[in-house]
Amino acid sequence: MTLSQLARTQRAVIRKLPENFDLTTKLIEQGFALKTEVTLAHKAPFNGPIAFNLHGTKICIAPSVAQQIGIEIV
């Protein structure tokens, strides 16, 4: 399952990051590290950014990036 498929009521843990080194580095700097717990905050309409709650803050990423992050539901 990927982060883009996460439902509003679900909690998940990040298990896999993108293979692109530069993208993975940027995600880790934003807090999207392995074993981080994530919840869905908001999905913008028309394939807009997706906001996630992690580390006590809300962070938005593009749906194409969220599709590359593997998760496990907890």
Rank of each mutant, 00 (worst) to 15 (best):
S64P: 04
V13D: 06
I61F: 03
I61T: 06
I71V: 07
V74G: 02
E19L: 10
L40C: 07
I69V: 11
A66E: 03
F32H: 03
E19M: 05
H55G: 14
G48E: 04
L6A: 00
R11D: 15
R8S: 13
I14K: 02
P18I: 04
N53H: 15
H55S: 08
L23N: 10
V65H: 03
G70V: 05
L27W: 09
M1L: 04
N20H: 13
P18A: 12
A12Y: 02
Q10L: 01
H55E: 12
C60W: 04
T36F: 03
I14H: 09
T36W: 10
F46W: 04
I59Y: 01
I14S: 01
I50R: 01
A41M: 01
V38A: 11
Q10Y: 00
L27N: 01
T24P: 01
R8H: 12
R8M: 15
A62D: 05
M1P: 11
T39M: 09
D22S: 14
K26F: 07
K43S: 04
A66Q: 05
A51Q: 06
G48K: 03
C60A: 15
A51K: 04
E19R: 15
C60Q: 14
A62T: 10
I69W: 10
R8N: 12
C60I: 01
Q68H: 10
R11A: 13
R15H: 07
G31V: 05
C60K: 04
T39C: 09
I73E: 04
R15E: 13
A7S: 10
I14E: 02
C60T: 07
A41C: 02
A44F: 12
T39Y: 09
G31Q: 05
F52R: 01
L17Q: 06
T9Q: 07
L54I: 04
T9M: 08
V74C: 13
Q68K: 15
I28N: 10
F52D: 02
A51T: 10
N47R: 13
A44H: 08
T39S: 15
P18Y: 13
K35N: 14
E37A: 07
I71D: 02
L40A: 00
N47P: 10
F21D: 04
D22F: 14
I59R: 05
N53V: 14
V38P: 05
R8I: 15
A7Q: 09
A41K: 06
I28S: 05
T9P: 00
G70A: 06
A33M: 05
E37Q: 12
T57G: 13
A62R: 14
P49W: 10
L17N: 02
C60G: 03
G56P: 08
E29I: 09
L34K: 12
Q5A: 14
K26E: 14
N47H: 10
E19P: 02
T39F: 08
G48F: 00
A51C: 06
S64F: 03
G56C: 05
P49K: 13
A51R: 11
K16W: 09
V38N: 06
F46T: 13
K35F: 07
F21P: 07
F32N: 01
L23S: 05
A12I: 01
I73Q: 03
P18Q: 08
A33E: 09
T25F: 08
